[in-house]
Simulated scan of single mutants.
Amino acid sequence: MRLLVSGGGTGGHIYPALALIEEAKKKDPTTEVLYVGTKKGLESQIVPDAGIDFKTIEIQGFKRSLSLENFKTVYLFLKSISDSKKIIKEFKPDIVIGTGGYVCGSVVYAASRLHIPTVIHEQNSVAGVTNKFLSHFTNKVAIAFDDVRKDFPDEKIVFTGNPRAQQVAHMQKKNRLAQYGLNDEQPTVLIFGGSRGAEKINQSALEAAKNFTAKNYQVLFVTGRVHFDEIMKKAEKMDIPSNMVIKPYIPNMPEILPEIDLIVGRAGATSLAEITALGIPSILIPSPYVTADHQTKNAMSLVERNAAKIIKEQDLNGELLSKTIDSLMTNENERDEMAKNAYQMGVRDAADQLYSVLQDLI
């Protein structure tokens, strides 16, 4: 198979693509892959580091207000379609898949105009603008949440789940917490606002720290590199309990997830795929800064099945956070029930299912 993949801007678009590529190469080691992204996007760092051939086009999103910059956006979009066609004709893919972000709009649209089979993958419970547009031209639309069906042509929809889930589904507990100064035998809470961190979550976790003193559980608080120095300056003036460890970043975060008894964090599609694949109870704090408030809708899909609790960012503070954590960490039966419900929602063969969709179109 010659597979061309495009998706970028955030890890939520990139990591599912990498999971699919990994699965494709497992099934057929002769698979050739080309990834098309942008120079400025996160994909320009992550994809080459994964050893995948990478090419770029230039594109940007529309401004929500009237702006001369939007004329440049239209120009770049038209040019990027032409550039995408050149890349596609040179690589000669059997199939093209887009996993979201502006960049895949040009690539998948260009492929459809060249009569090459195309698929898009929507990770969230609310469709992105690019995927809504592409759904009119693509052959299939793969989804990870049933709630998003209403946003796409029904006859094109295939439920696959999020390929990222399959990458973490079979990870086992291997006592990895000691390297972070924690006790491998003690129940553990992970507080994590995403790879870049989240200011309100970080501030609330710091405010909550005093309430974790002498608890029979421990807390791993990951701030994100951008916020770490500021958080540590504040922490130095406080009495941080010995059962709370603060780190800027955890390399390959999924590896430690089997060690975690409760996750506190955002409700991005990749995070929820990992949480449900492993069956981990969670306290979700959806980002209010995302399109169509889709993280709240993502979170509610778990909350409604008693697989997670939710705290709106506008309500978040240290007292509420520590009380919610403590209520779960002192109630093992409730955590077990949430874990079971989360696990039942997981799609642990999502990459395999998406790969099958591609194969059926070739």
Rank of each mutant, 00 (worst) to 15 (best):
F77P: 01
V141Q: 00
T73I: 12
A127N: 03
L66I: 07
K86Q: 14
L68Y: 04
S125K: 10
E90Y: 01
S67G: 11
R149P: 10
I157E: 00
L134D: 01
R113W: 09
L66R: 11
A169R: 03
A50H: 10
R64T: 11
D83K: 05
F71V: 13
V119Y: 00
T56R: 08
D146N: 15
S84E: 11
V96P: 10
H115A: 14
D151R: 02
A110S: 15
K72C: 12
F133E: 06
K89G: 15
L134V: 11
I143L: 04
Q60P: 05
P117H: 06
R149L: 07
E69S: 15
I143E: 02
D49Q: 15
I88G: 06
A144F: 02
K63D: 13
K150G: 12
K63Q: 15
L66C: 10
S106T: 06
K86H: 13
I120W: 03
E58I: 07
G105D: 12
P93F: 06
A165D: 08
S84C: 08
K85C: 09
R164N: 09
K156V: 08
K85I: 04
E69W: 05
I95L: 09
P93G: 06
I143C: 04
I116E: 12
G98V: 03
N131P: 11
T99W: 01
Y102E: 00
R164V: 10
H115T: 14
S80M: 09
V74H: 15
A144S: 14
A111N: 04
S106G: 03
F71K: 14
K63N: 14
Y109R: 04
A165N: 07
A111K: 01
Q60H: 13
Q60V: 14
E122R: 02
A165E: 11
F62T: 11
D53P: 14
D49C: 09
H121A: 12
P48M: 12
D146Q: 15
